[in-house]
Nucleic acid binder design. Structure first.
Length: 485
RNA sequence: GCAGUCAUAGUAUAGCCUGGUUAGUAUUCGGGGUUUCCAACCCUGUGACGCGGGUUCGAAUCCCGCUGACUGCACCA
């Protein structure tokens, strides 16, 4: 299925749509989830909690979205999360200063250098705009963080550009009060904010977006002492090696040194098992080991979990081994102690993170699940039943002869237990089609026979098959069919 | 941020070049009928010119600015 059809479905069926769309000054990069989108997002997160947070006994927190300047001084975002740019005075074109200089006069200046360094070279080498030969203005830093003003004096603070910073600064308290033991996973779901230069393609590149992040704190000398590894040692992970995707078990990945240690392999395994259950086509997925130039400024080793879609390979999860970068920086800046006891050993934990993009994951689930069934002239969202925005459609074959009343009764009985949708209007086939597009795995229909023997038909979304069941069996059947794996 | 293309009901589109009736069509959606298990049919109703300015007696239509979408470049910590 392709991007345009997913977009159309999203707009027509309430999955997602542009923010503030009735106003002409609405800015790009902001989208909202409609009812169907929220429903599938909640279920996706429930699956994430089951498969990762609970399974690994992680601690989940919910931190502030606005964080103090000190946090980002320590994290490096104030200096490193910014690009040096120069603007042409004449035509207004902007360029990355470091790239412009290295491309035009082969002088390498690190992007984190002081702004005067860029100005100096531009003046010395008499660099002019490559488009119009105009002169450049002084170099500036474009920081991708949104600054906010706190209180009447508008003292600067920032919207977090990644959720994980609260996990790092909360770590000492959590470790003490929650009786932590390494390795310890701390998880968080929430919004992050980045002032992207060119947001594009709806949910795939947003200025305000959801992340589900997991920071695993571990003892760097015990990365291969991972008891739980046995749970995933036979789980298959797909890794890109020399431009070829190779499927191997987690054990093989460690033994062949493809993945550096058991801890990292364990979490890549968990992540694969999780995504398998979202219904994403895993044969179109890979872990890609990042080269030195691609890695984030804090990462030692990095694997991106990527999935192939009709608009190319999409990064859904960044798996970064951040070493002690964050805890050391925060310890220094805050003068707090971040070392903990691991058995007899005092250690400053290292961090391995799984930073998941929720919006992109949801898009991919939609794209991989959406099918056009030409034979029956219908569009079907074949999502896993436990992720479906609506679990069951509750329909009357016709409104009259008392059928609507029986249908209402059934709906009343189940509506607080499952996501049910009541519909009496129009032709039955049309109602089935609508439910197919919403991804409802089941529809039940009350007909004339119902009045005689208290049975209803239950229709399955993917096969369109129908069978008769007793009304009294409905709840049991539904709860079994839509339960999480 | 740059360049090109584009912007009309929920969705997809016609009309714009050559300014002038009530902005047309398909589908969706609401109500009613018919049918009585897969988008059928009949009646009926709701619904749109992205925003702001200019030209003009008159602007969906011509001009300017802004915003957004798409594609390419750059960017993606």
């Amino acid at each position: 299925m392709n991007y345009d059809l997913v977009m159309k479905l999203a707009l027509e069926r309430g999955f997602y749509f542009p923010s503030c769309e009735v106003y002409g000054d609405a800015k790009a990069g902001f989208w909202e989830y409609g009812p169907s989108g929220v429903s599938i997002k909640n279920k996706f997160l429930q699956l994430w909690r089951r498969e990762l947070v609970r399974r690994d006994r992680m601690l989940e927190i919910d931190g502030s979205q606005i964080m103090s300047s000190s946090v980002f001084e320590a994290s490096g975002h104030l200096s490193s999360f910014a690009d040096p740019i120069v603007k042409c005075k004449k035509c207004g074109a902007t360029f990355r200063a470091d790239r412009l200089i290295s491309e035009t006069c082969q002088v390498e200046i690190p992007e984190s250098a002081a702004l005067e360094e860029f100005d100096k070279v531009i003046t010395e080498k008499k660099l002019l705009c490559t488009k119009c030969q105009g002169e450049f203005d002084a170099a500036k830093k474009f920081n991708m963080m949104f600054q906010v003003g706190i209180g009447p004096e508008a003292e600067p603070a920032y919207l977090r550009p990644e959720t994980c910073q609260s996990i790092f600064v909360d770590f000492p308290r959590l470790y003490k009060t929650m009786r932590g033991k390494l390795p310890l996973g701390i998880a968080q779901v929430g919004k992050s904010f980045r002032n992207e230069i060119a947001p594009r393609q709806s949910l795939l590149r947003l200025r305000e977006f959801y992340q589900a992040e997991i920071e695993v704190f571990c003892n760097p000398s015990k990365l291969n002492e991972m008891e739980r590894f046995s749970e995933v040692q036979d789980t298959t992970i797909r890794i890109l090696i020399d431009d070829k995707i190779q499927a191997m078990t987690c054990k093989e990945a460690v033994d062949s040194n493809t993945v550096p240690n058991k801890l990292v392999a364990y979490y890549l395994g968990l992540l694969s098992e999780f995504y398998e259950k979202t219904g994403i086509d895993m044969s179109k997925s890979r872990f890609r080991k990042l080269g030195d130039k691609e890695k984030a400024f804090y990462a030692d080793v990095a694997f991106d979990f990527e999935v192939e879609t009709t608009i190319g390979w999409l990064e859904l999860v960044a798996c970064n081994y951040r070493s002690d970068y964050d805890l050391t920086s925060h310890a220094k800046k805050s003068n707090e102690k971040f070392e903990v006891m691991d058995g007899e050993e005092k250690t400053l934990p290292h961090v391995f993170e799984l930073s998941m993009g929720i919006d992109r994951s949801l898009y991919t689930i939609l794209e991989h699940s959406l099918k056009v069934d030409k034979e029956h002239e219908r569009t079907v969202l074949s999502v896993k039943p436990y992720l479906a925005p609506i679990h069951v459609g509750v329909l009357s074959l016709v409104k009259k002869d008392g059928l609507a009343e029986i249908t209402d009764e059934i709906y009343l009985k189940i509506k607080t237990k499952v996501d049910a949708f009541l519909d009496h209007s129009g032709a039955i086939g049309r109602r089935y089609r609508r439910l197919d597009e919403l991804g409802a795995p089941f529809a039940i229909t009350v007909d004339h026979q119902t009045k005689e023997d208290d049975t209803i038909t239950i229709r399955r979304r993917d096969s369109m098959e129908q069978s008769r069941i007793k009304i009294s069996e409905l709840e049991t059947i539904l709860s079994k069919e839509i339960s999480f794996p």
